[in-house]
Amino acid sequence: MSALKIKKGASRKSAYDLRDPNSEVIETHTLAVTVDNEAGVLARVIGLFSGRGYNIDSLTVAEVDHLGHTSRITIVTRGTPAVIEQIKAQLGRIVPVHDVHDLTVEGPSVERELALFKVHGTGNDRVEALRLADIFRANAVDSTLESFVFELTGTPDKIDAFAELMRPLGLVEMARTGVAALSRGKE
C-alpha cells in the first residue's frame, strides 16, 4: 500500500472538510438563499427538497430588495453533514439562485420567528395566560371578554415553550412565520 498524502485543508474551501464526511449525526442548519424574485422560484426550491427527499423544518420568503427584485429564502433543514452539503450544492445549481449561506457554520447568527396565538378562556385561566404572556414579553394584539390573540417574537424554542404553556389554558389556534435569520457582526 502506497501512502498518497494530500496536505490537509490545502486546497479545500468547504467547511464540509472540517467535519467527518461519513458522520451519521443529524444536524439542523439554517440556510439563507438569495434568489431572483421571479415566477416559480419558490416552486423550484421546494420541488428540489421534495424531489430529492430532503427535510424542510421551516421556510420563510419575502422580497428584500424591491429594486433588484431579489428575495431571501430562509430554510431550516436537517440532515447528515453530507446531506447538508448536497442540499447547498443543489440549491446553488438553481439558475435564479444568487447565493447560499449556511448561517449555522458561517459563524454566530440571530434567528427569530414571529407567532400569533389565539387563547380562549375565562376566570383563572385567563388571568394565568395574561401573566405568562407578560413573562414571555408577548403582546396582546386582540382581545375579547373570552379570548386573546398574543403576538410573540423569539427563537423557535421560545415559541414552542410558550405554546406548551398556553395549551392547557385554552390555546385554540396558532400561526407561525418560520425563521428569519441574519449573521451577527458587521459583515
Partner: peptide, 15 residues
Amino acid sequence: IDPSSINKVIHVDLP
C-alpha cells in the same frame, strides 16, 4: 463542473 456532483455519492479526497 457541477459542485453538486462532488461528494454526492462517494466522498472524494481532492475535489
